[in-house]
Amino acid sequence: MKSATDPVENLAQLIACPSVTPAEAGALTALESMLAPLGFSVERPVFSEEGTPDVENLYARRSGNGPHLMFAGHTDVVPVGDEAAWKFPPFSAAIHNGQMYGRGAVDMKGGVACFTAAVARHITKHGSLKGSISFLITGDEEGPSINGTGKLLEWAKAKGESWDAAIVGEPTNPDKLGDMIKIGRRGSLSGTITVNGVQGHAAYPHLADNPVRGLVTLLDSLLYPALDKGTKDFQATNLEVTTMDVGNPAVNVIPAKATATFNIRYNDSWTDETLMAEIHNRLDRAAGRRKLRPGRKTPVNYELTWRDRPSHVFLTHDDKLVGTLTKSVEAVIGRRPQLSTSGGTSDARFIKDYCPVVEFGLVGKTMHMVDERVDIADLETLTQIYERFIEDFLA
């Protein structure tokens, strides 16, 4: 077993495992082989739920007297796409011009590799930990996120585990390493509107009721006016219509039904309950409008279905966690990172219910792309930042 202190070697081992979600494909085994020699106890529970694939996860802990720091992340990756379009095979971990190529290089096997190297260096230097460190790693972040981090946290808590802080190694930096620490995330809420009409001939609209007219009216009420103007810590809440369908291939038939799905990324002006109420109110008011339905006295006949498991908005206020990580970045890179709540959701949305959490990892420019890659120099720099953070946080 080679030393786990080298993030480049760690990452090469992880990329070599074709762990396209939800397949483990050896990635957790590779990580266990790095952590076990460092004195970590490792468990790999598998979680199941009807209608979703079984997922293997990893929980590793090395205990000491002091704070308990969690590092969270995932080893599953998105599909490679057109493999022939890659400059190098996507699981070869090829190095070219100072960069390592491979699916998961930045999202987020690179973060896992660097934190593992940082812990290995810390233990090599000190021989022990002043506190406890645990790795909470899932194979379900890029999938449904049902049999992964959420259940792994519940499982660990039931065993008596608790944490003082957590860092998620997602690729948070937009351009250069040290640009950004994520200290919160917007919430995410999705729903589907179904408008029921009366099918008929397009030449005889008075004998039918076109549901598309009603659907356009309802969607307009959701898009205008804006839901809010943003807050001190978050950008404005945004609603996007993501699908529309009538299931009608004929050009001369008024359809019987029209559906649209929307997603809302919302700030701390709202909870999922208050936002749902606002959407219902807007739709109810709009349903009676006649502008696009001349001669119709009845309101638009619609149904609204909410998708399961909304992601809740959160903001981390923990001064020790945020301050220590900020100072660690400054100490290694020489500039202060921006504290941000931008972007989509991550597994931090589950962790926030157990302890304060922030996200910091590599530059994310190539994540999910063909030729996903990471600068070799960034792997070393991120490892140094993590090592400094571990030293100062546990102290």
Rank of each mutant, 00 (worst) to 15 (best):
E387D: 12
T242E: 06
F389I: 09
G64M: 05
A165C: 04
D318M: 06
R265Q: 03
F47L: 12
R335F: 13
E50R: 05
T231Q: 01
I15K: 02
T316C: 09
E154I: 11
F262K: 05
Y59Q: 01
S92D: 10
R307N: 14
F91N: 05
Q384M: 07
G26F: 10
V195H: 01
G214D: 08
T259G: 01
G214M: 15
Y354W: 10
R185V: 12
R349W: 06
S188Q: 13
G26M: 09
L339Y: 13
M34G: 03
P249R: 06
D233L: 03
I351W: 03
E161M: 12
A36H: 04
P45Q: 09
N97S: 11
T326E: 09
H122Y: 15
E330P: 01
G323R: 07
K125Y: 05
A93R: 02
V77C: 02
R335V: 06
G230H: 13
S342A: 12
G131H: 12
E278T: 08
P211N: 13
M100F: 06
L218E: 13
M369S: 07
K352E: 13
T5E: 00
H312V: 15
H122N: 13
S3N: 07
F350K: 09
P79I: 04
G323Y: 08
P337K: 06
G39L: 01
S328R: 03
T383V: 09
F314I: 08
A208N: 12
P89E: 11
R121Q: 14
M244S: 03
G184I: 08
M70H: 08
D54W: 11
I95L: 03
R309Q: 14
E50V: 11
L215C: 08
R335Y: 13
E43K: 00
I376H: 04
D245R: 12
K87Y: 06
R186S: 09
G200V: 14
D54C: 11
F389N: 07
A60G: 06
S63Y: 11
G111E: 11
G66V: 15
A94K: 05
G178Q: 09
D371C: 05
K232T: 15
Y59C: 04
E330F: 01
R185S: 13
K291L: 09
P90C: 13
G111S: 13
L207S: 15
R349P: 00
D140M: 11
A203I: 15
E32W: 07
L227T: 14
A118W: 10
T259D: 02
K365H: 08
C355R: 08
V77I: 12
V42T: 02
R61P: 00
C114Q: 08
Y204R: 14
I279F: 00
T116W: 05
L14M: 07
R290S: 14
G51H: 10
T261Q: 11
Y266N: 01
N301I: 13
D353T: 12
L382E: 04
L207F: 15
D6T: 05
D220S: 13
V300R: 01
T242C: 01
Y386G: 02
D76E: 04
V55K: 03
N238W: 06
D140K: 00
T52Q: 14
H126D: 11
T261L: 01
G98M: 08
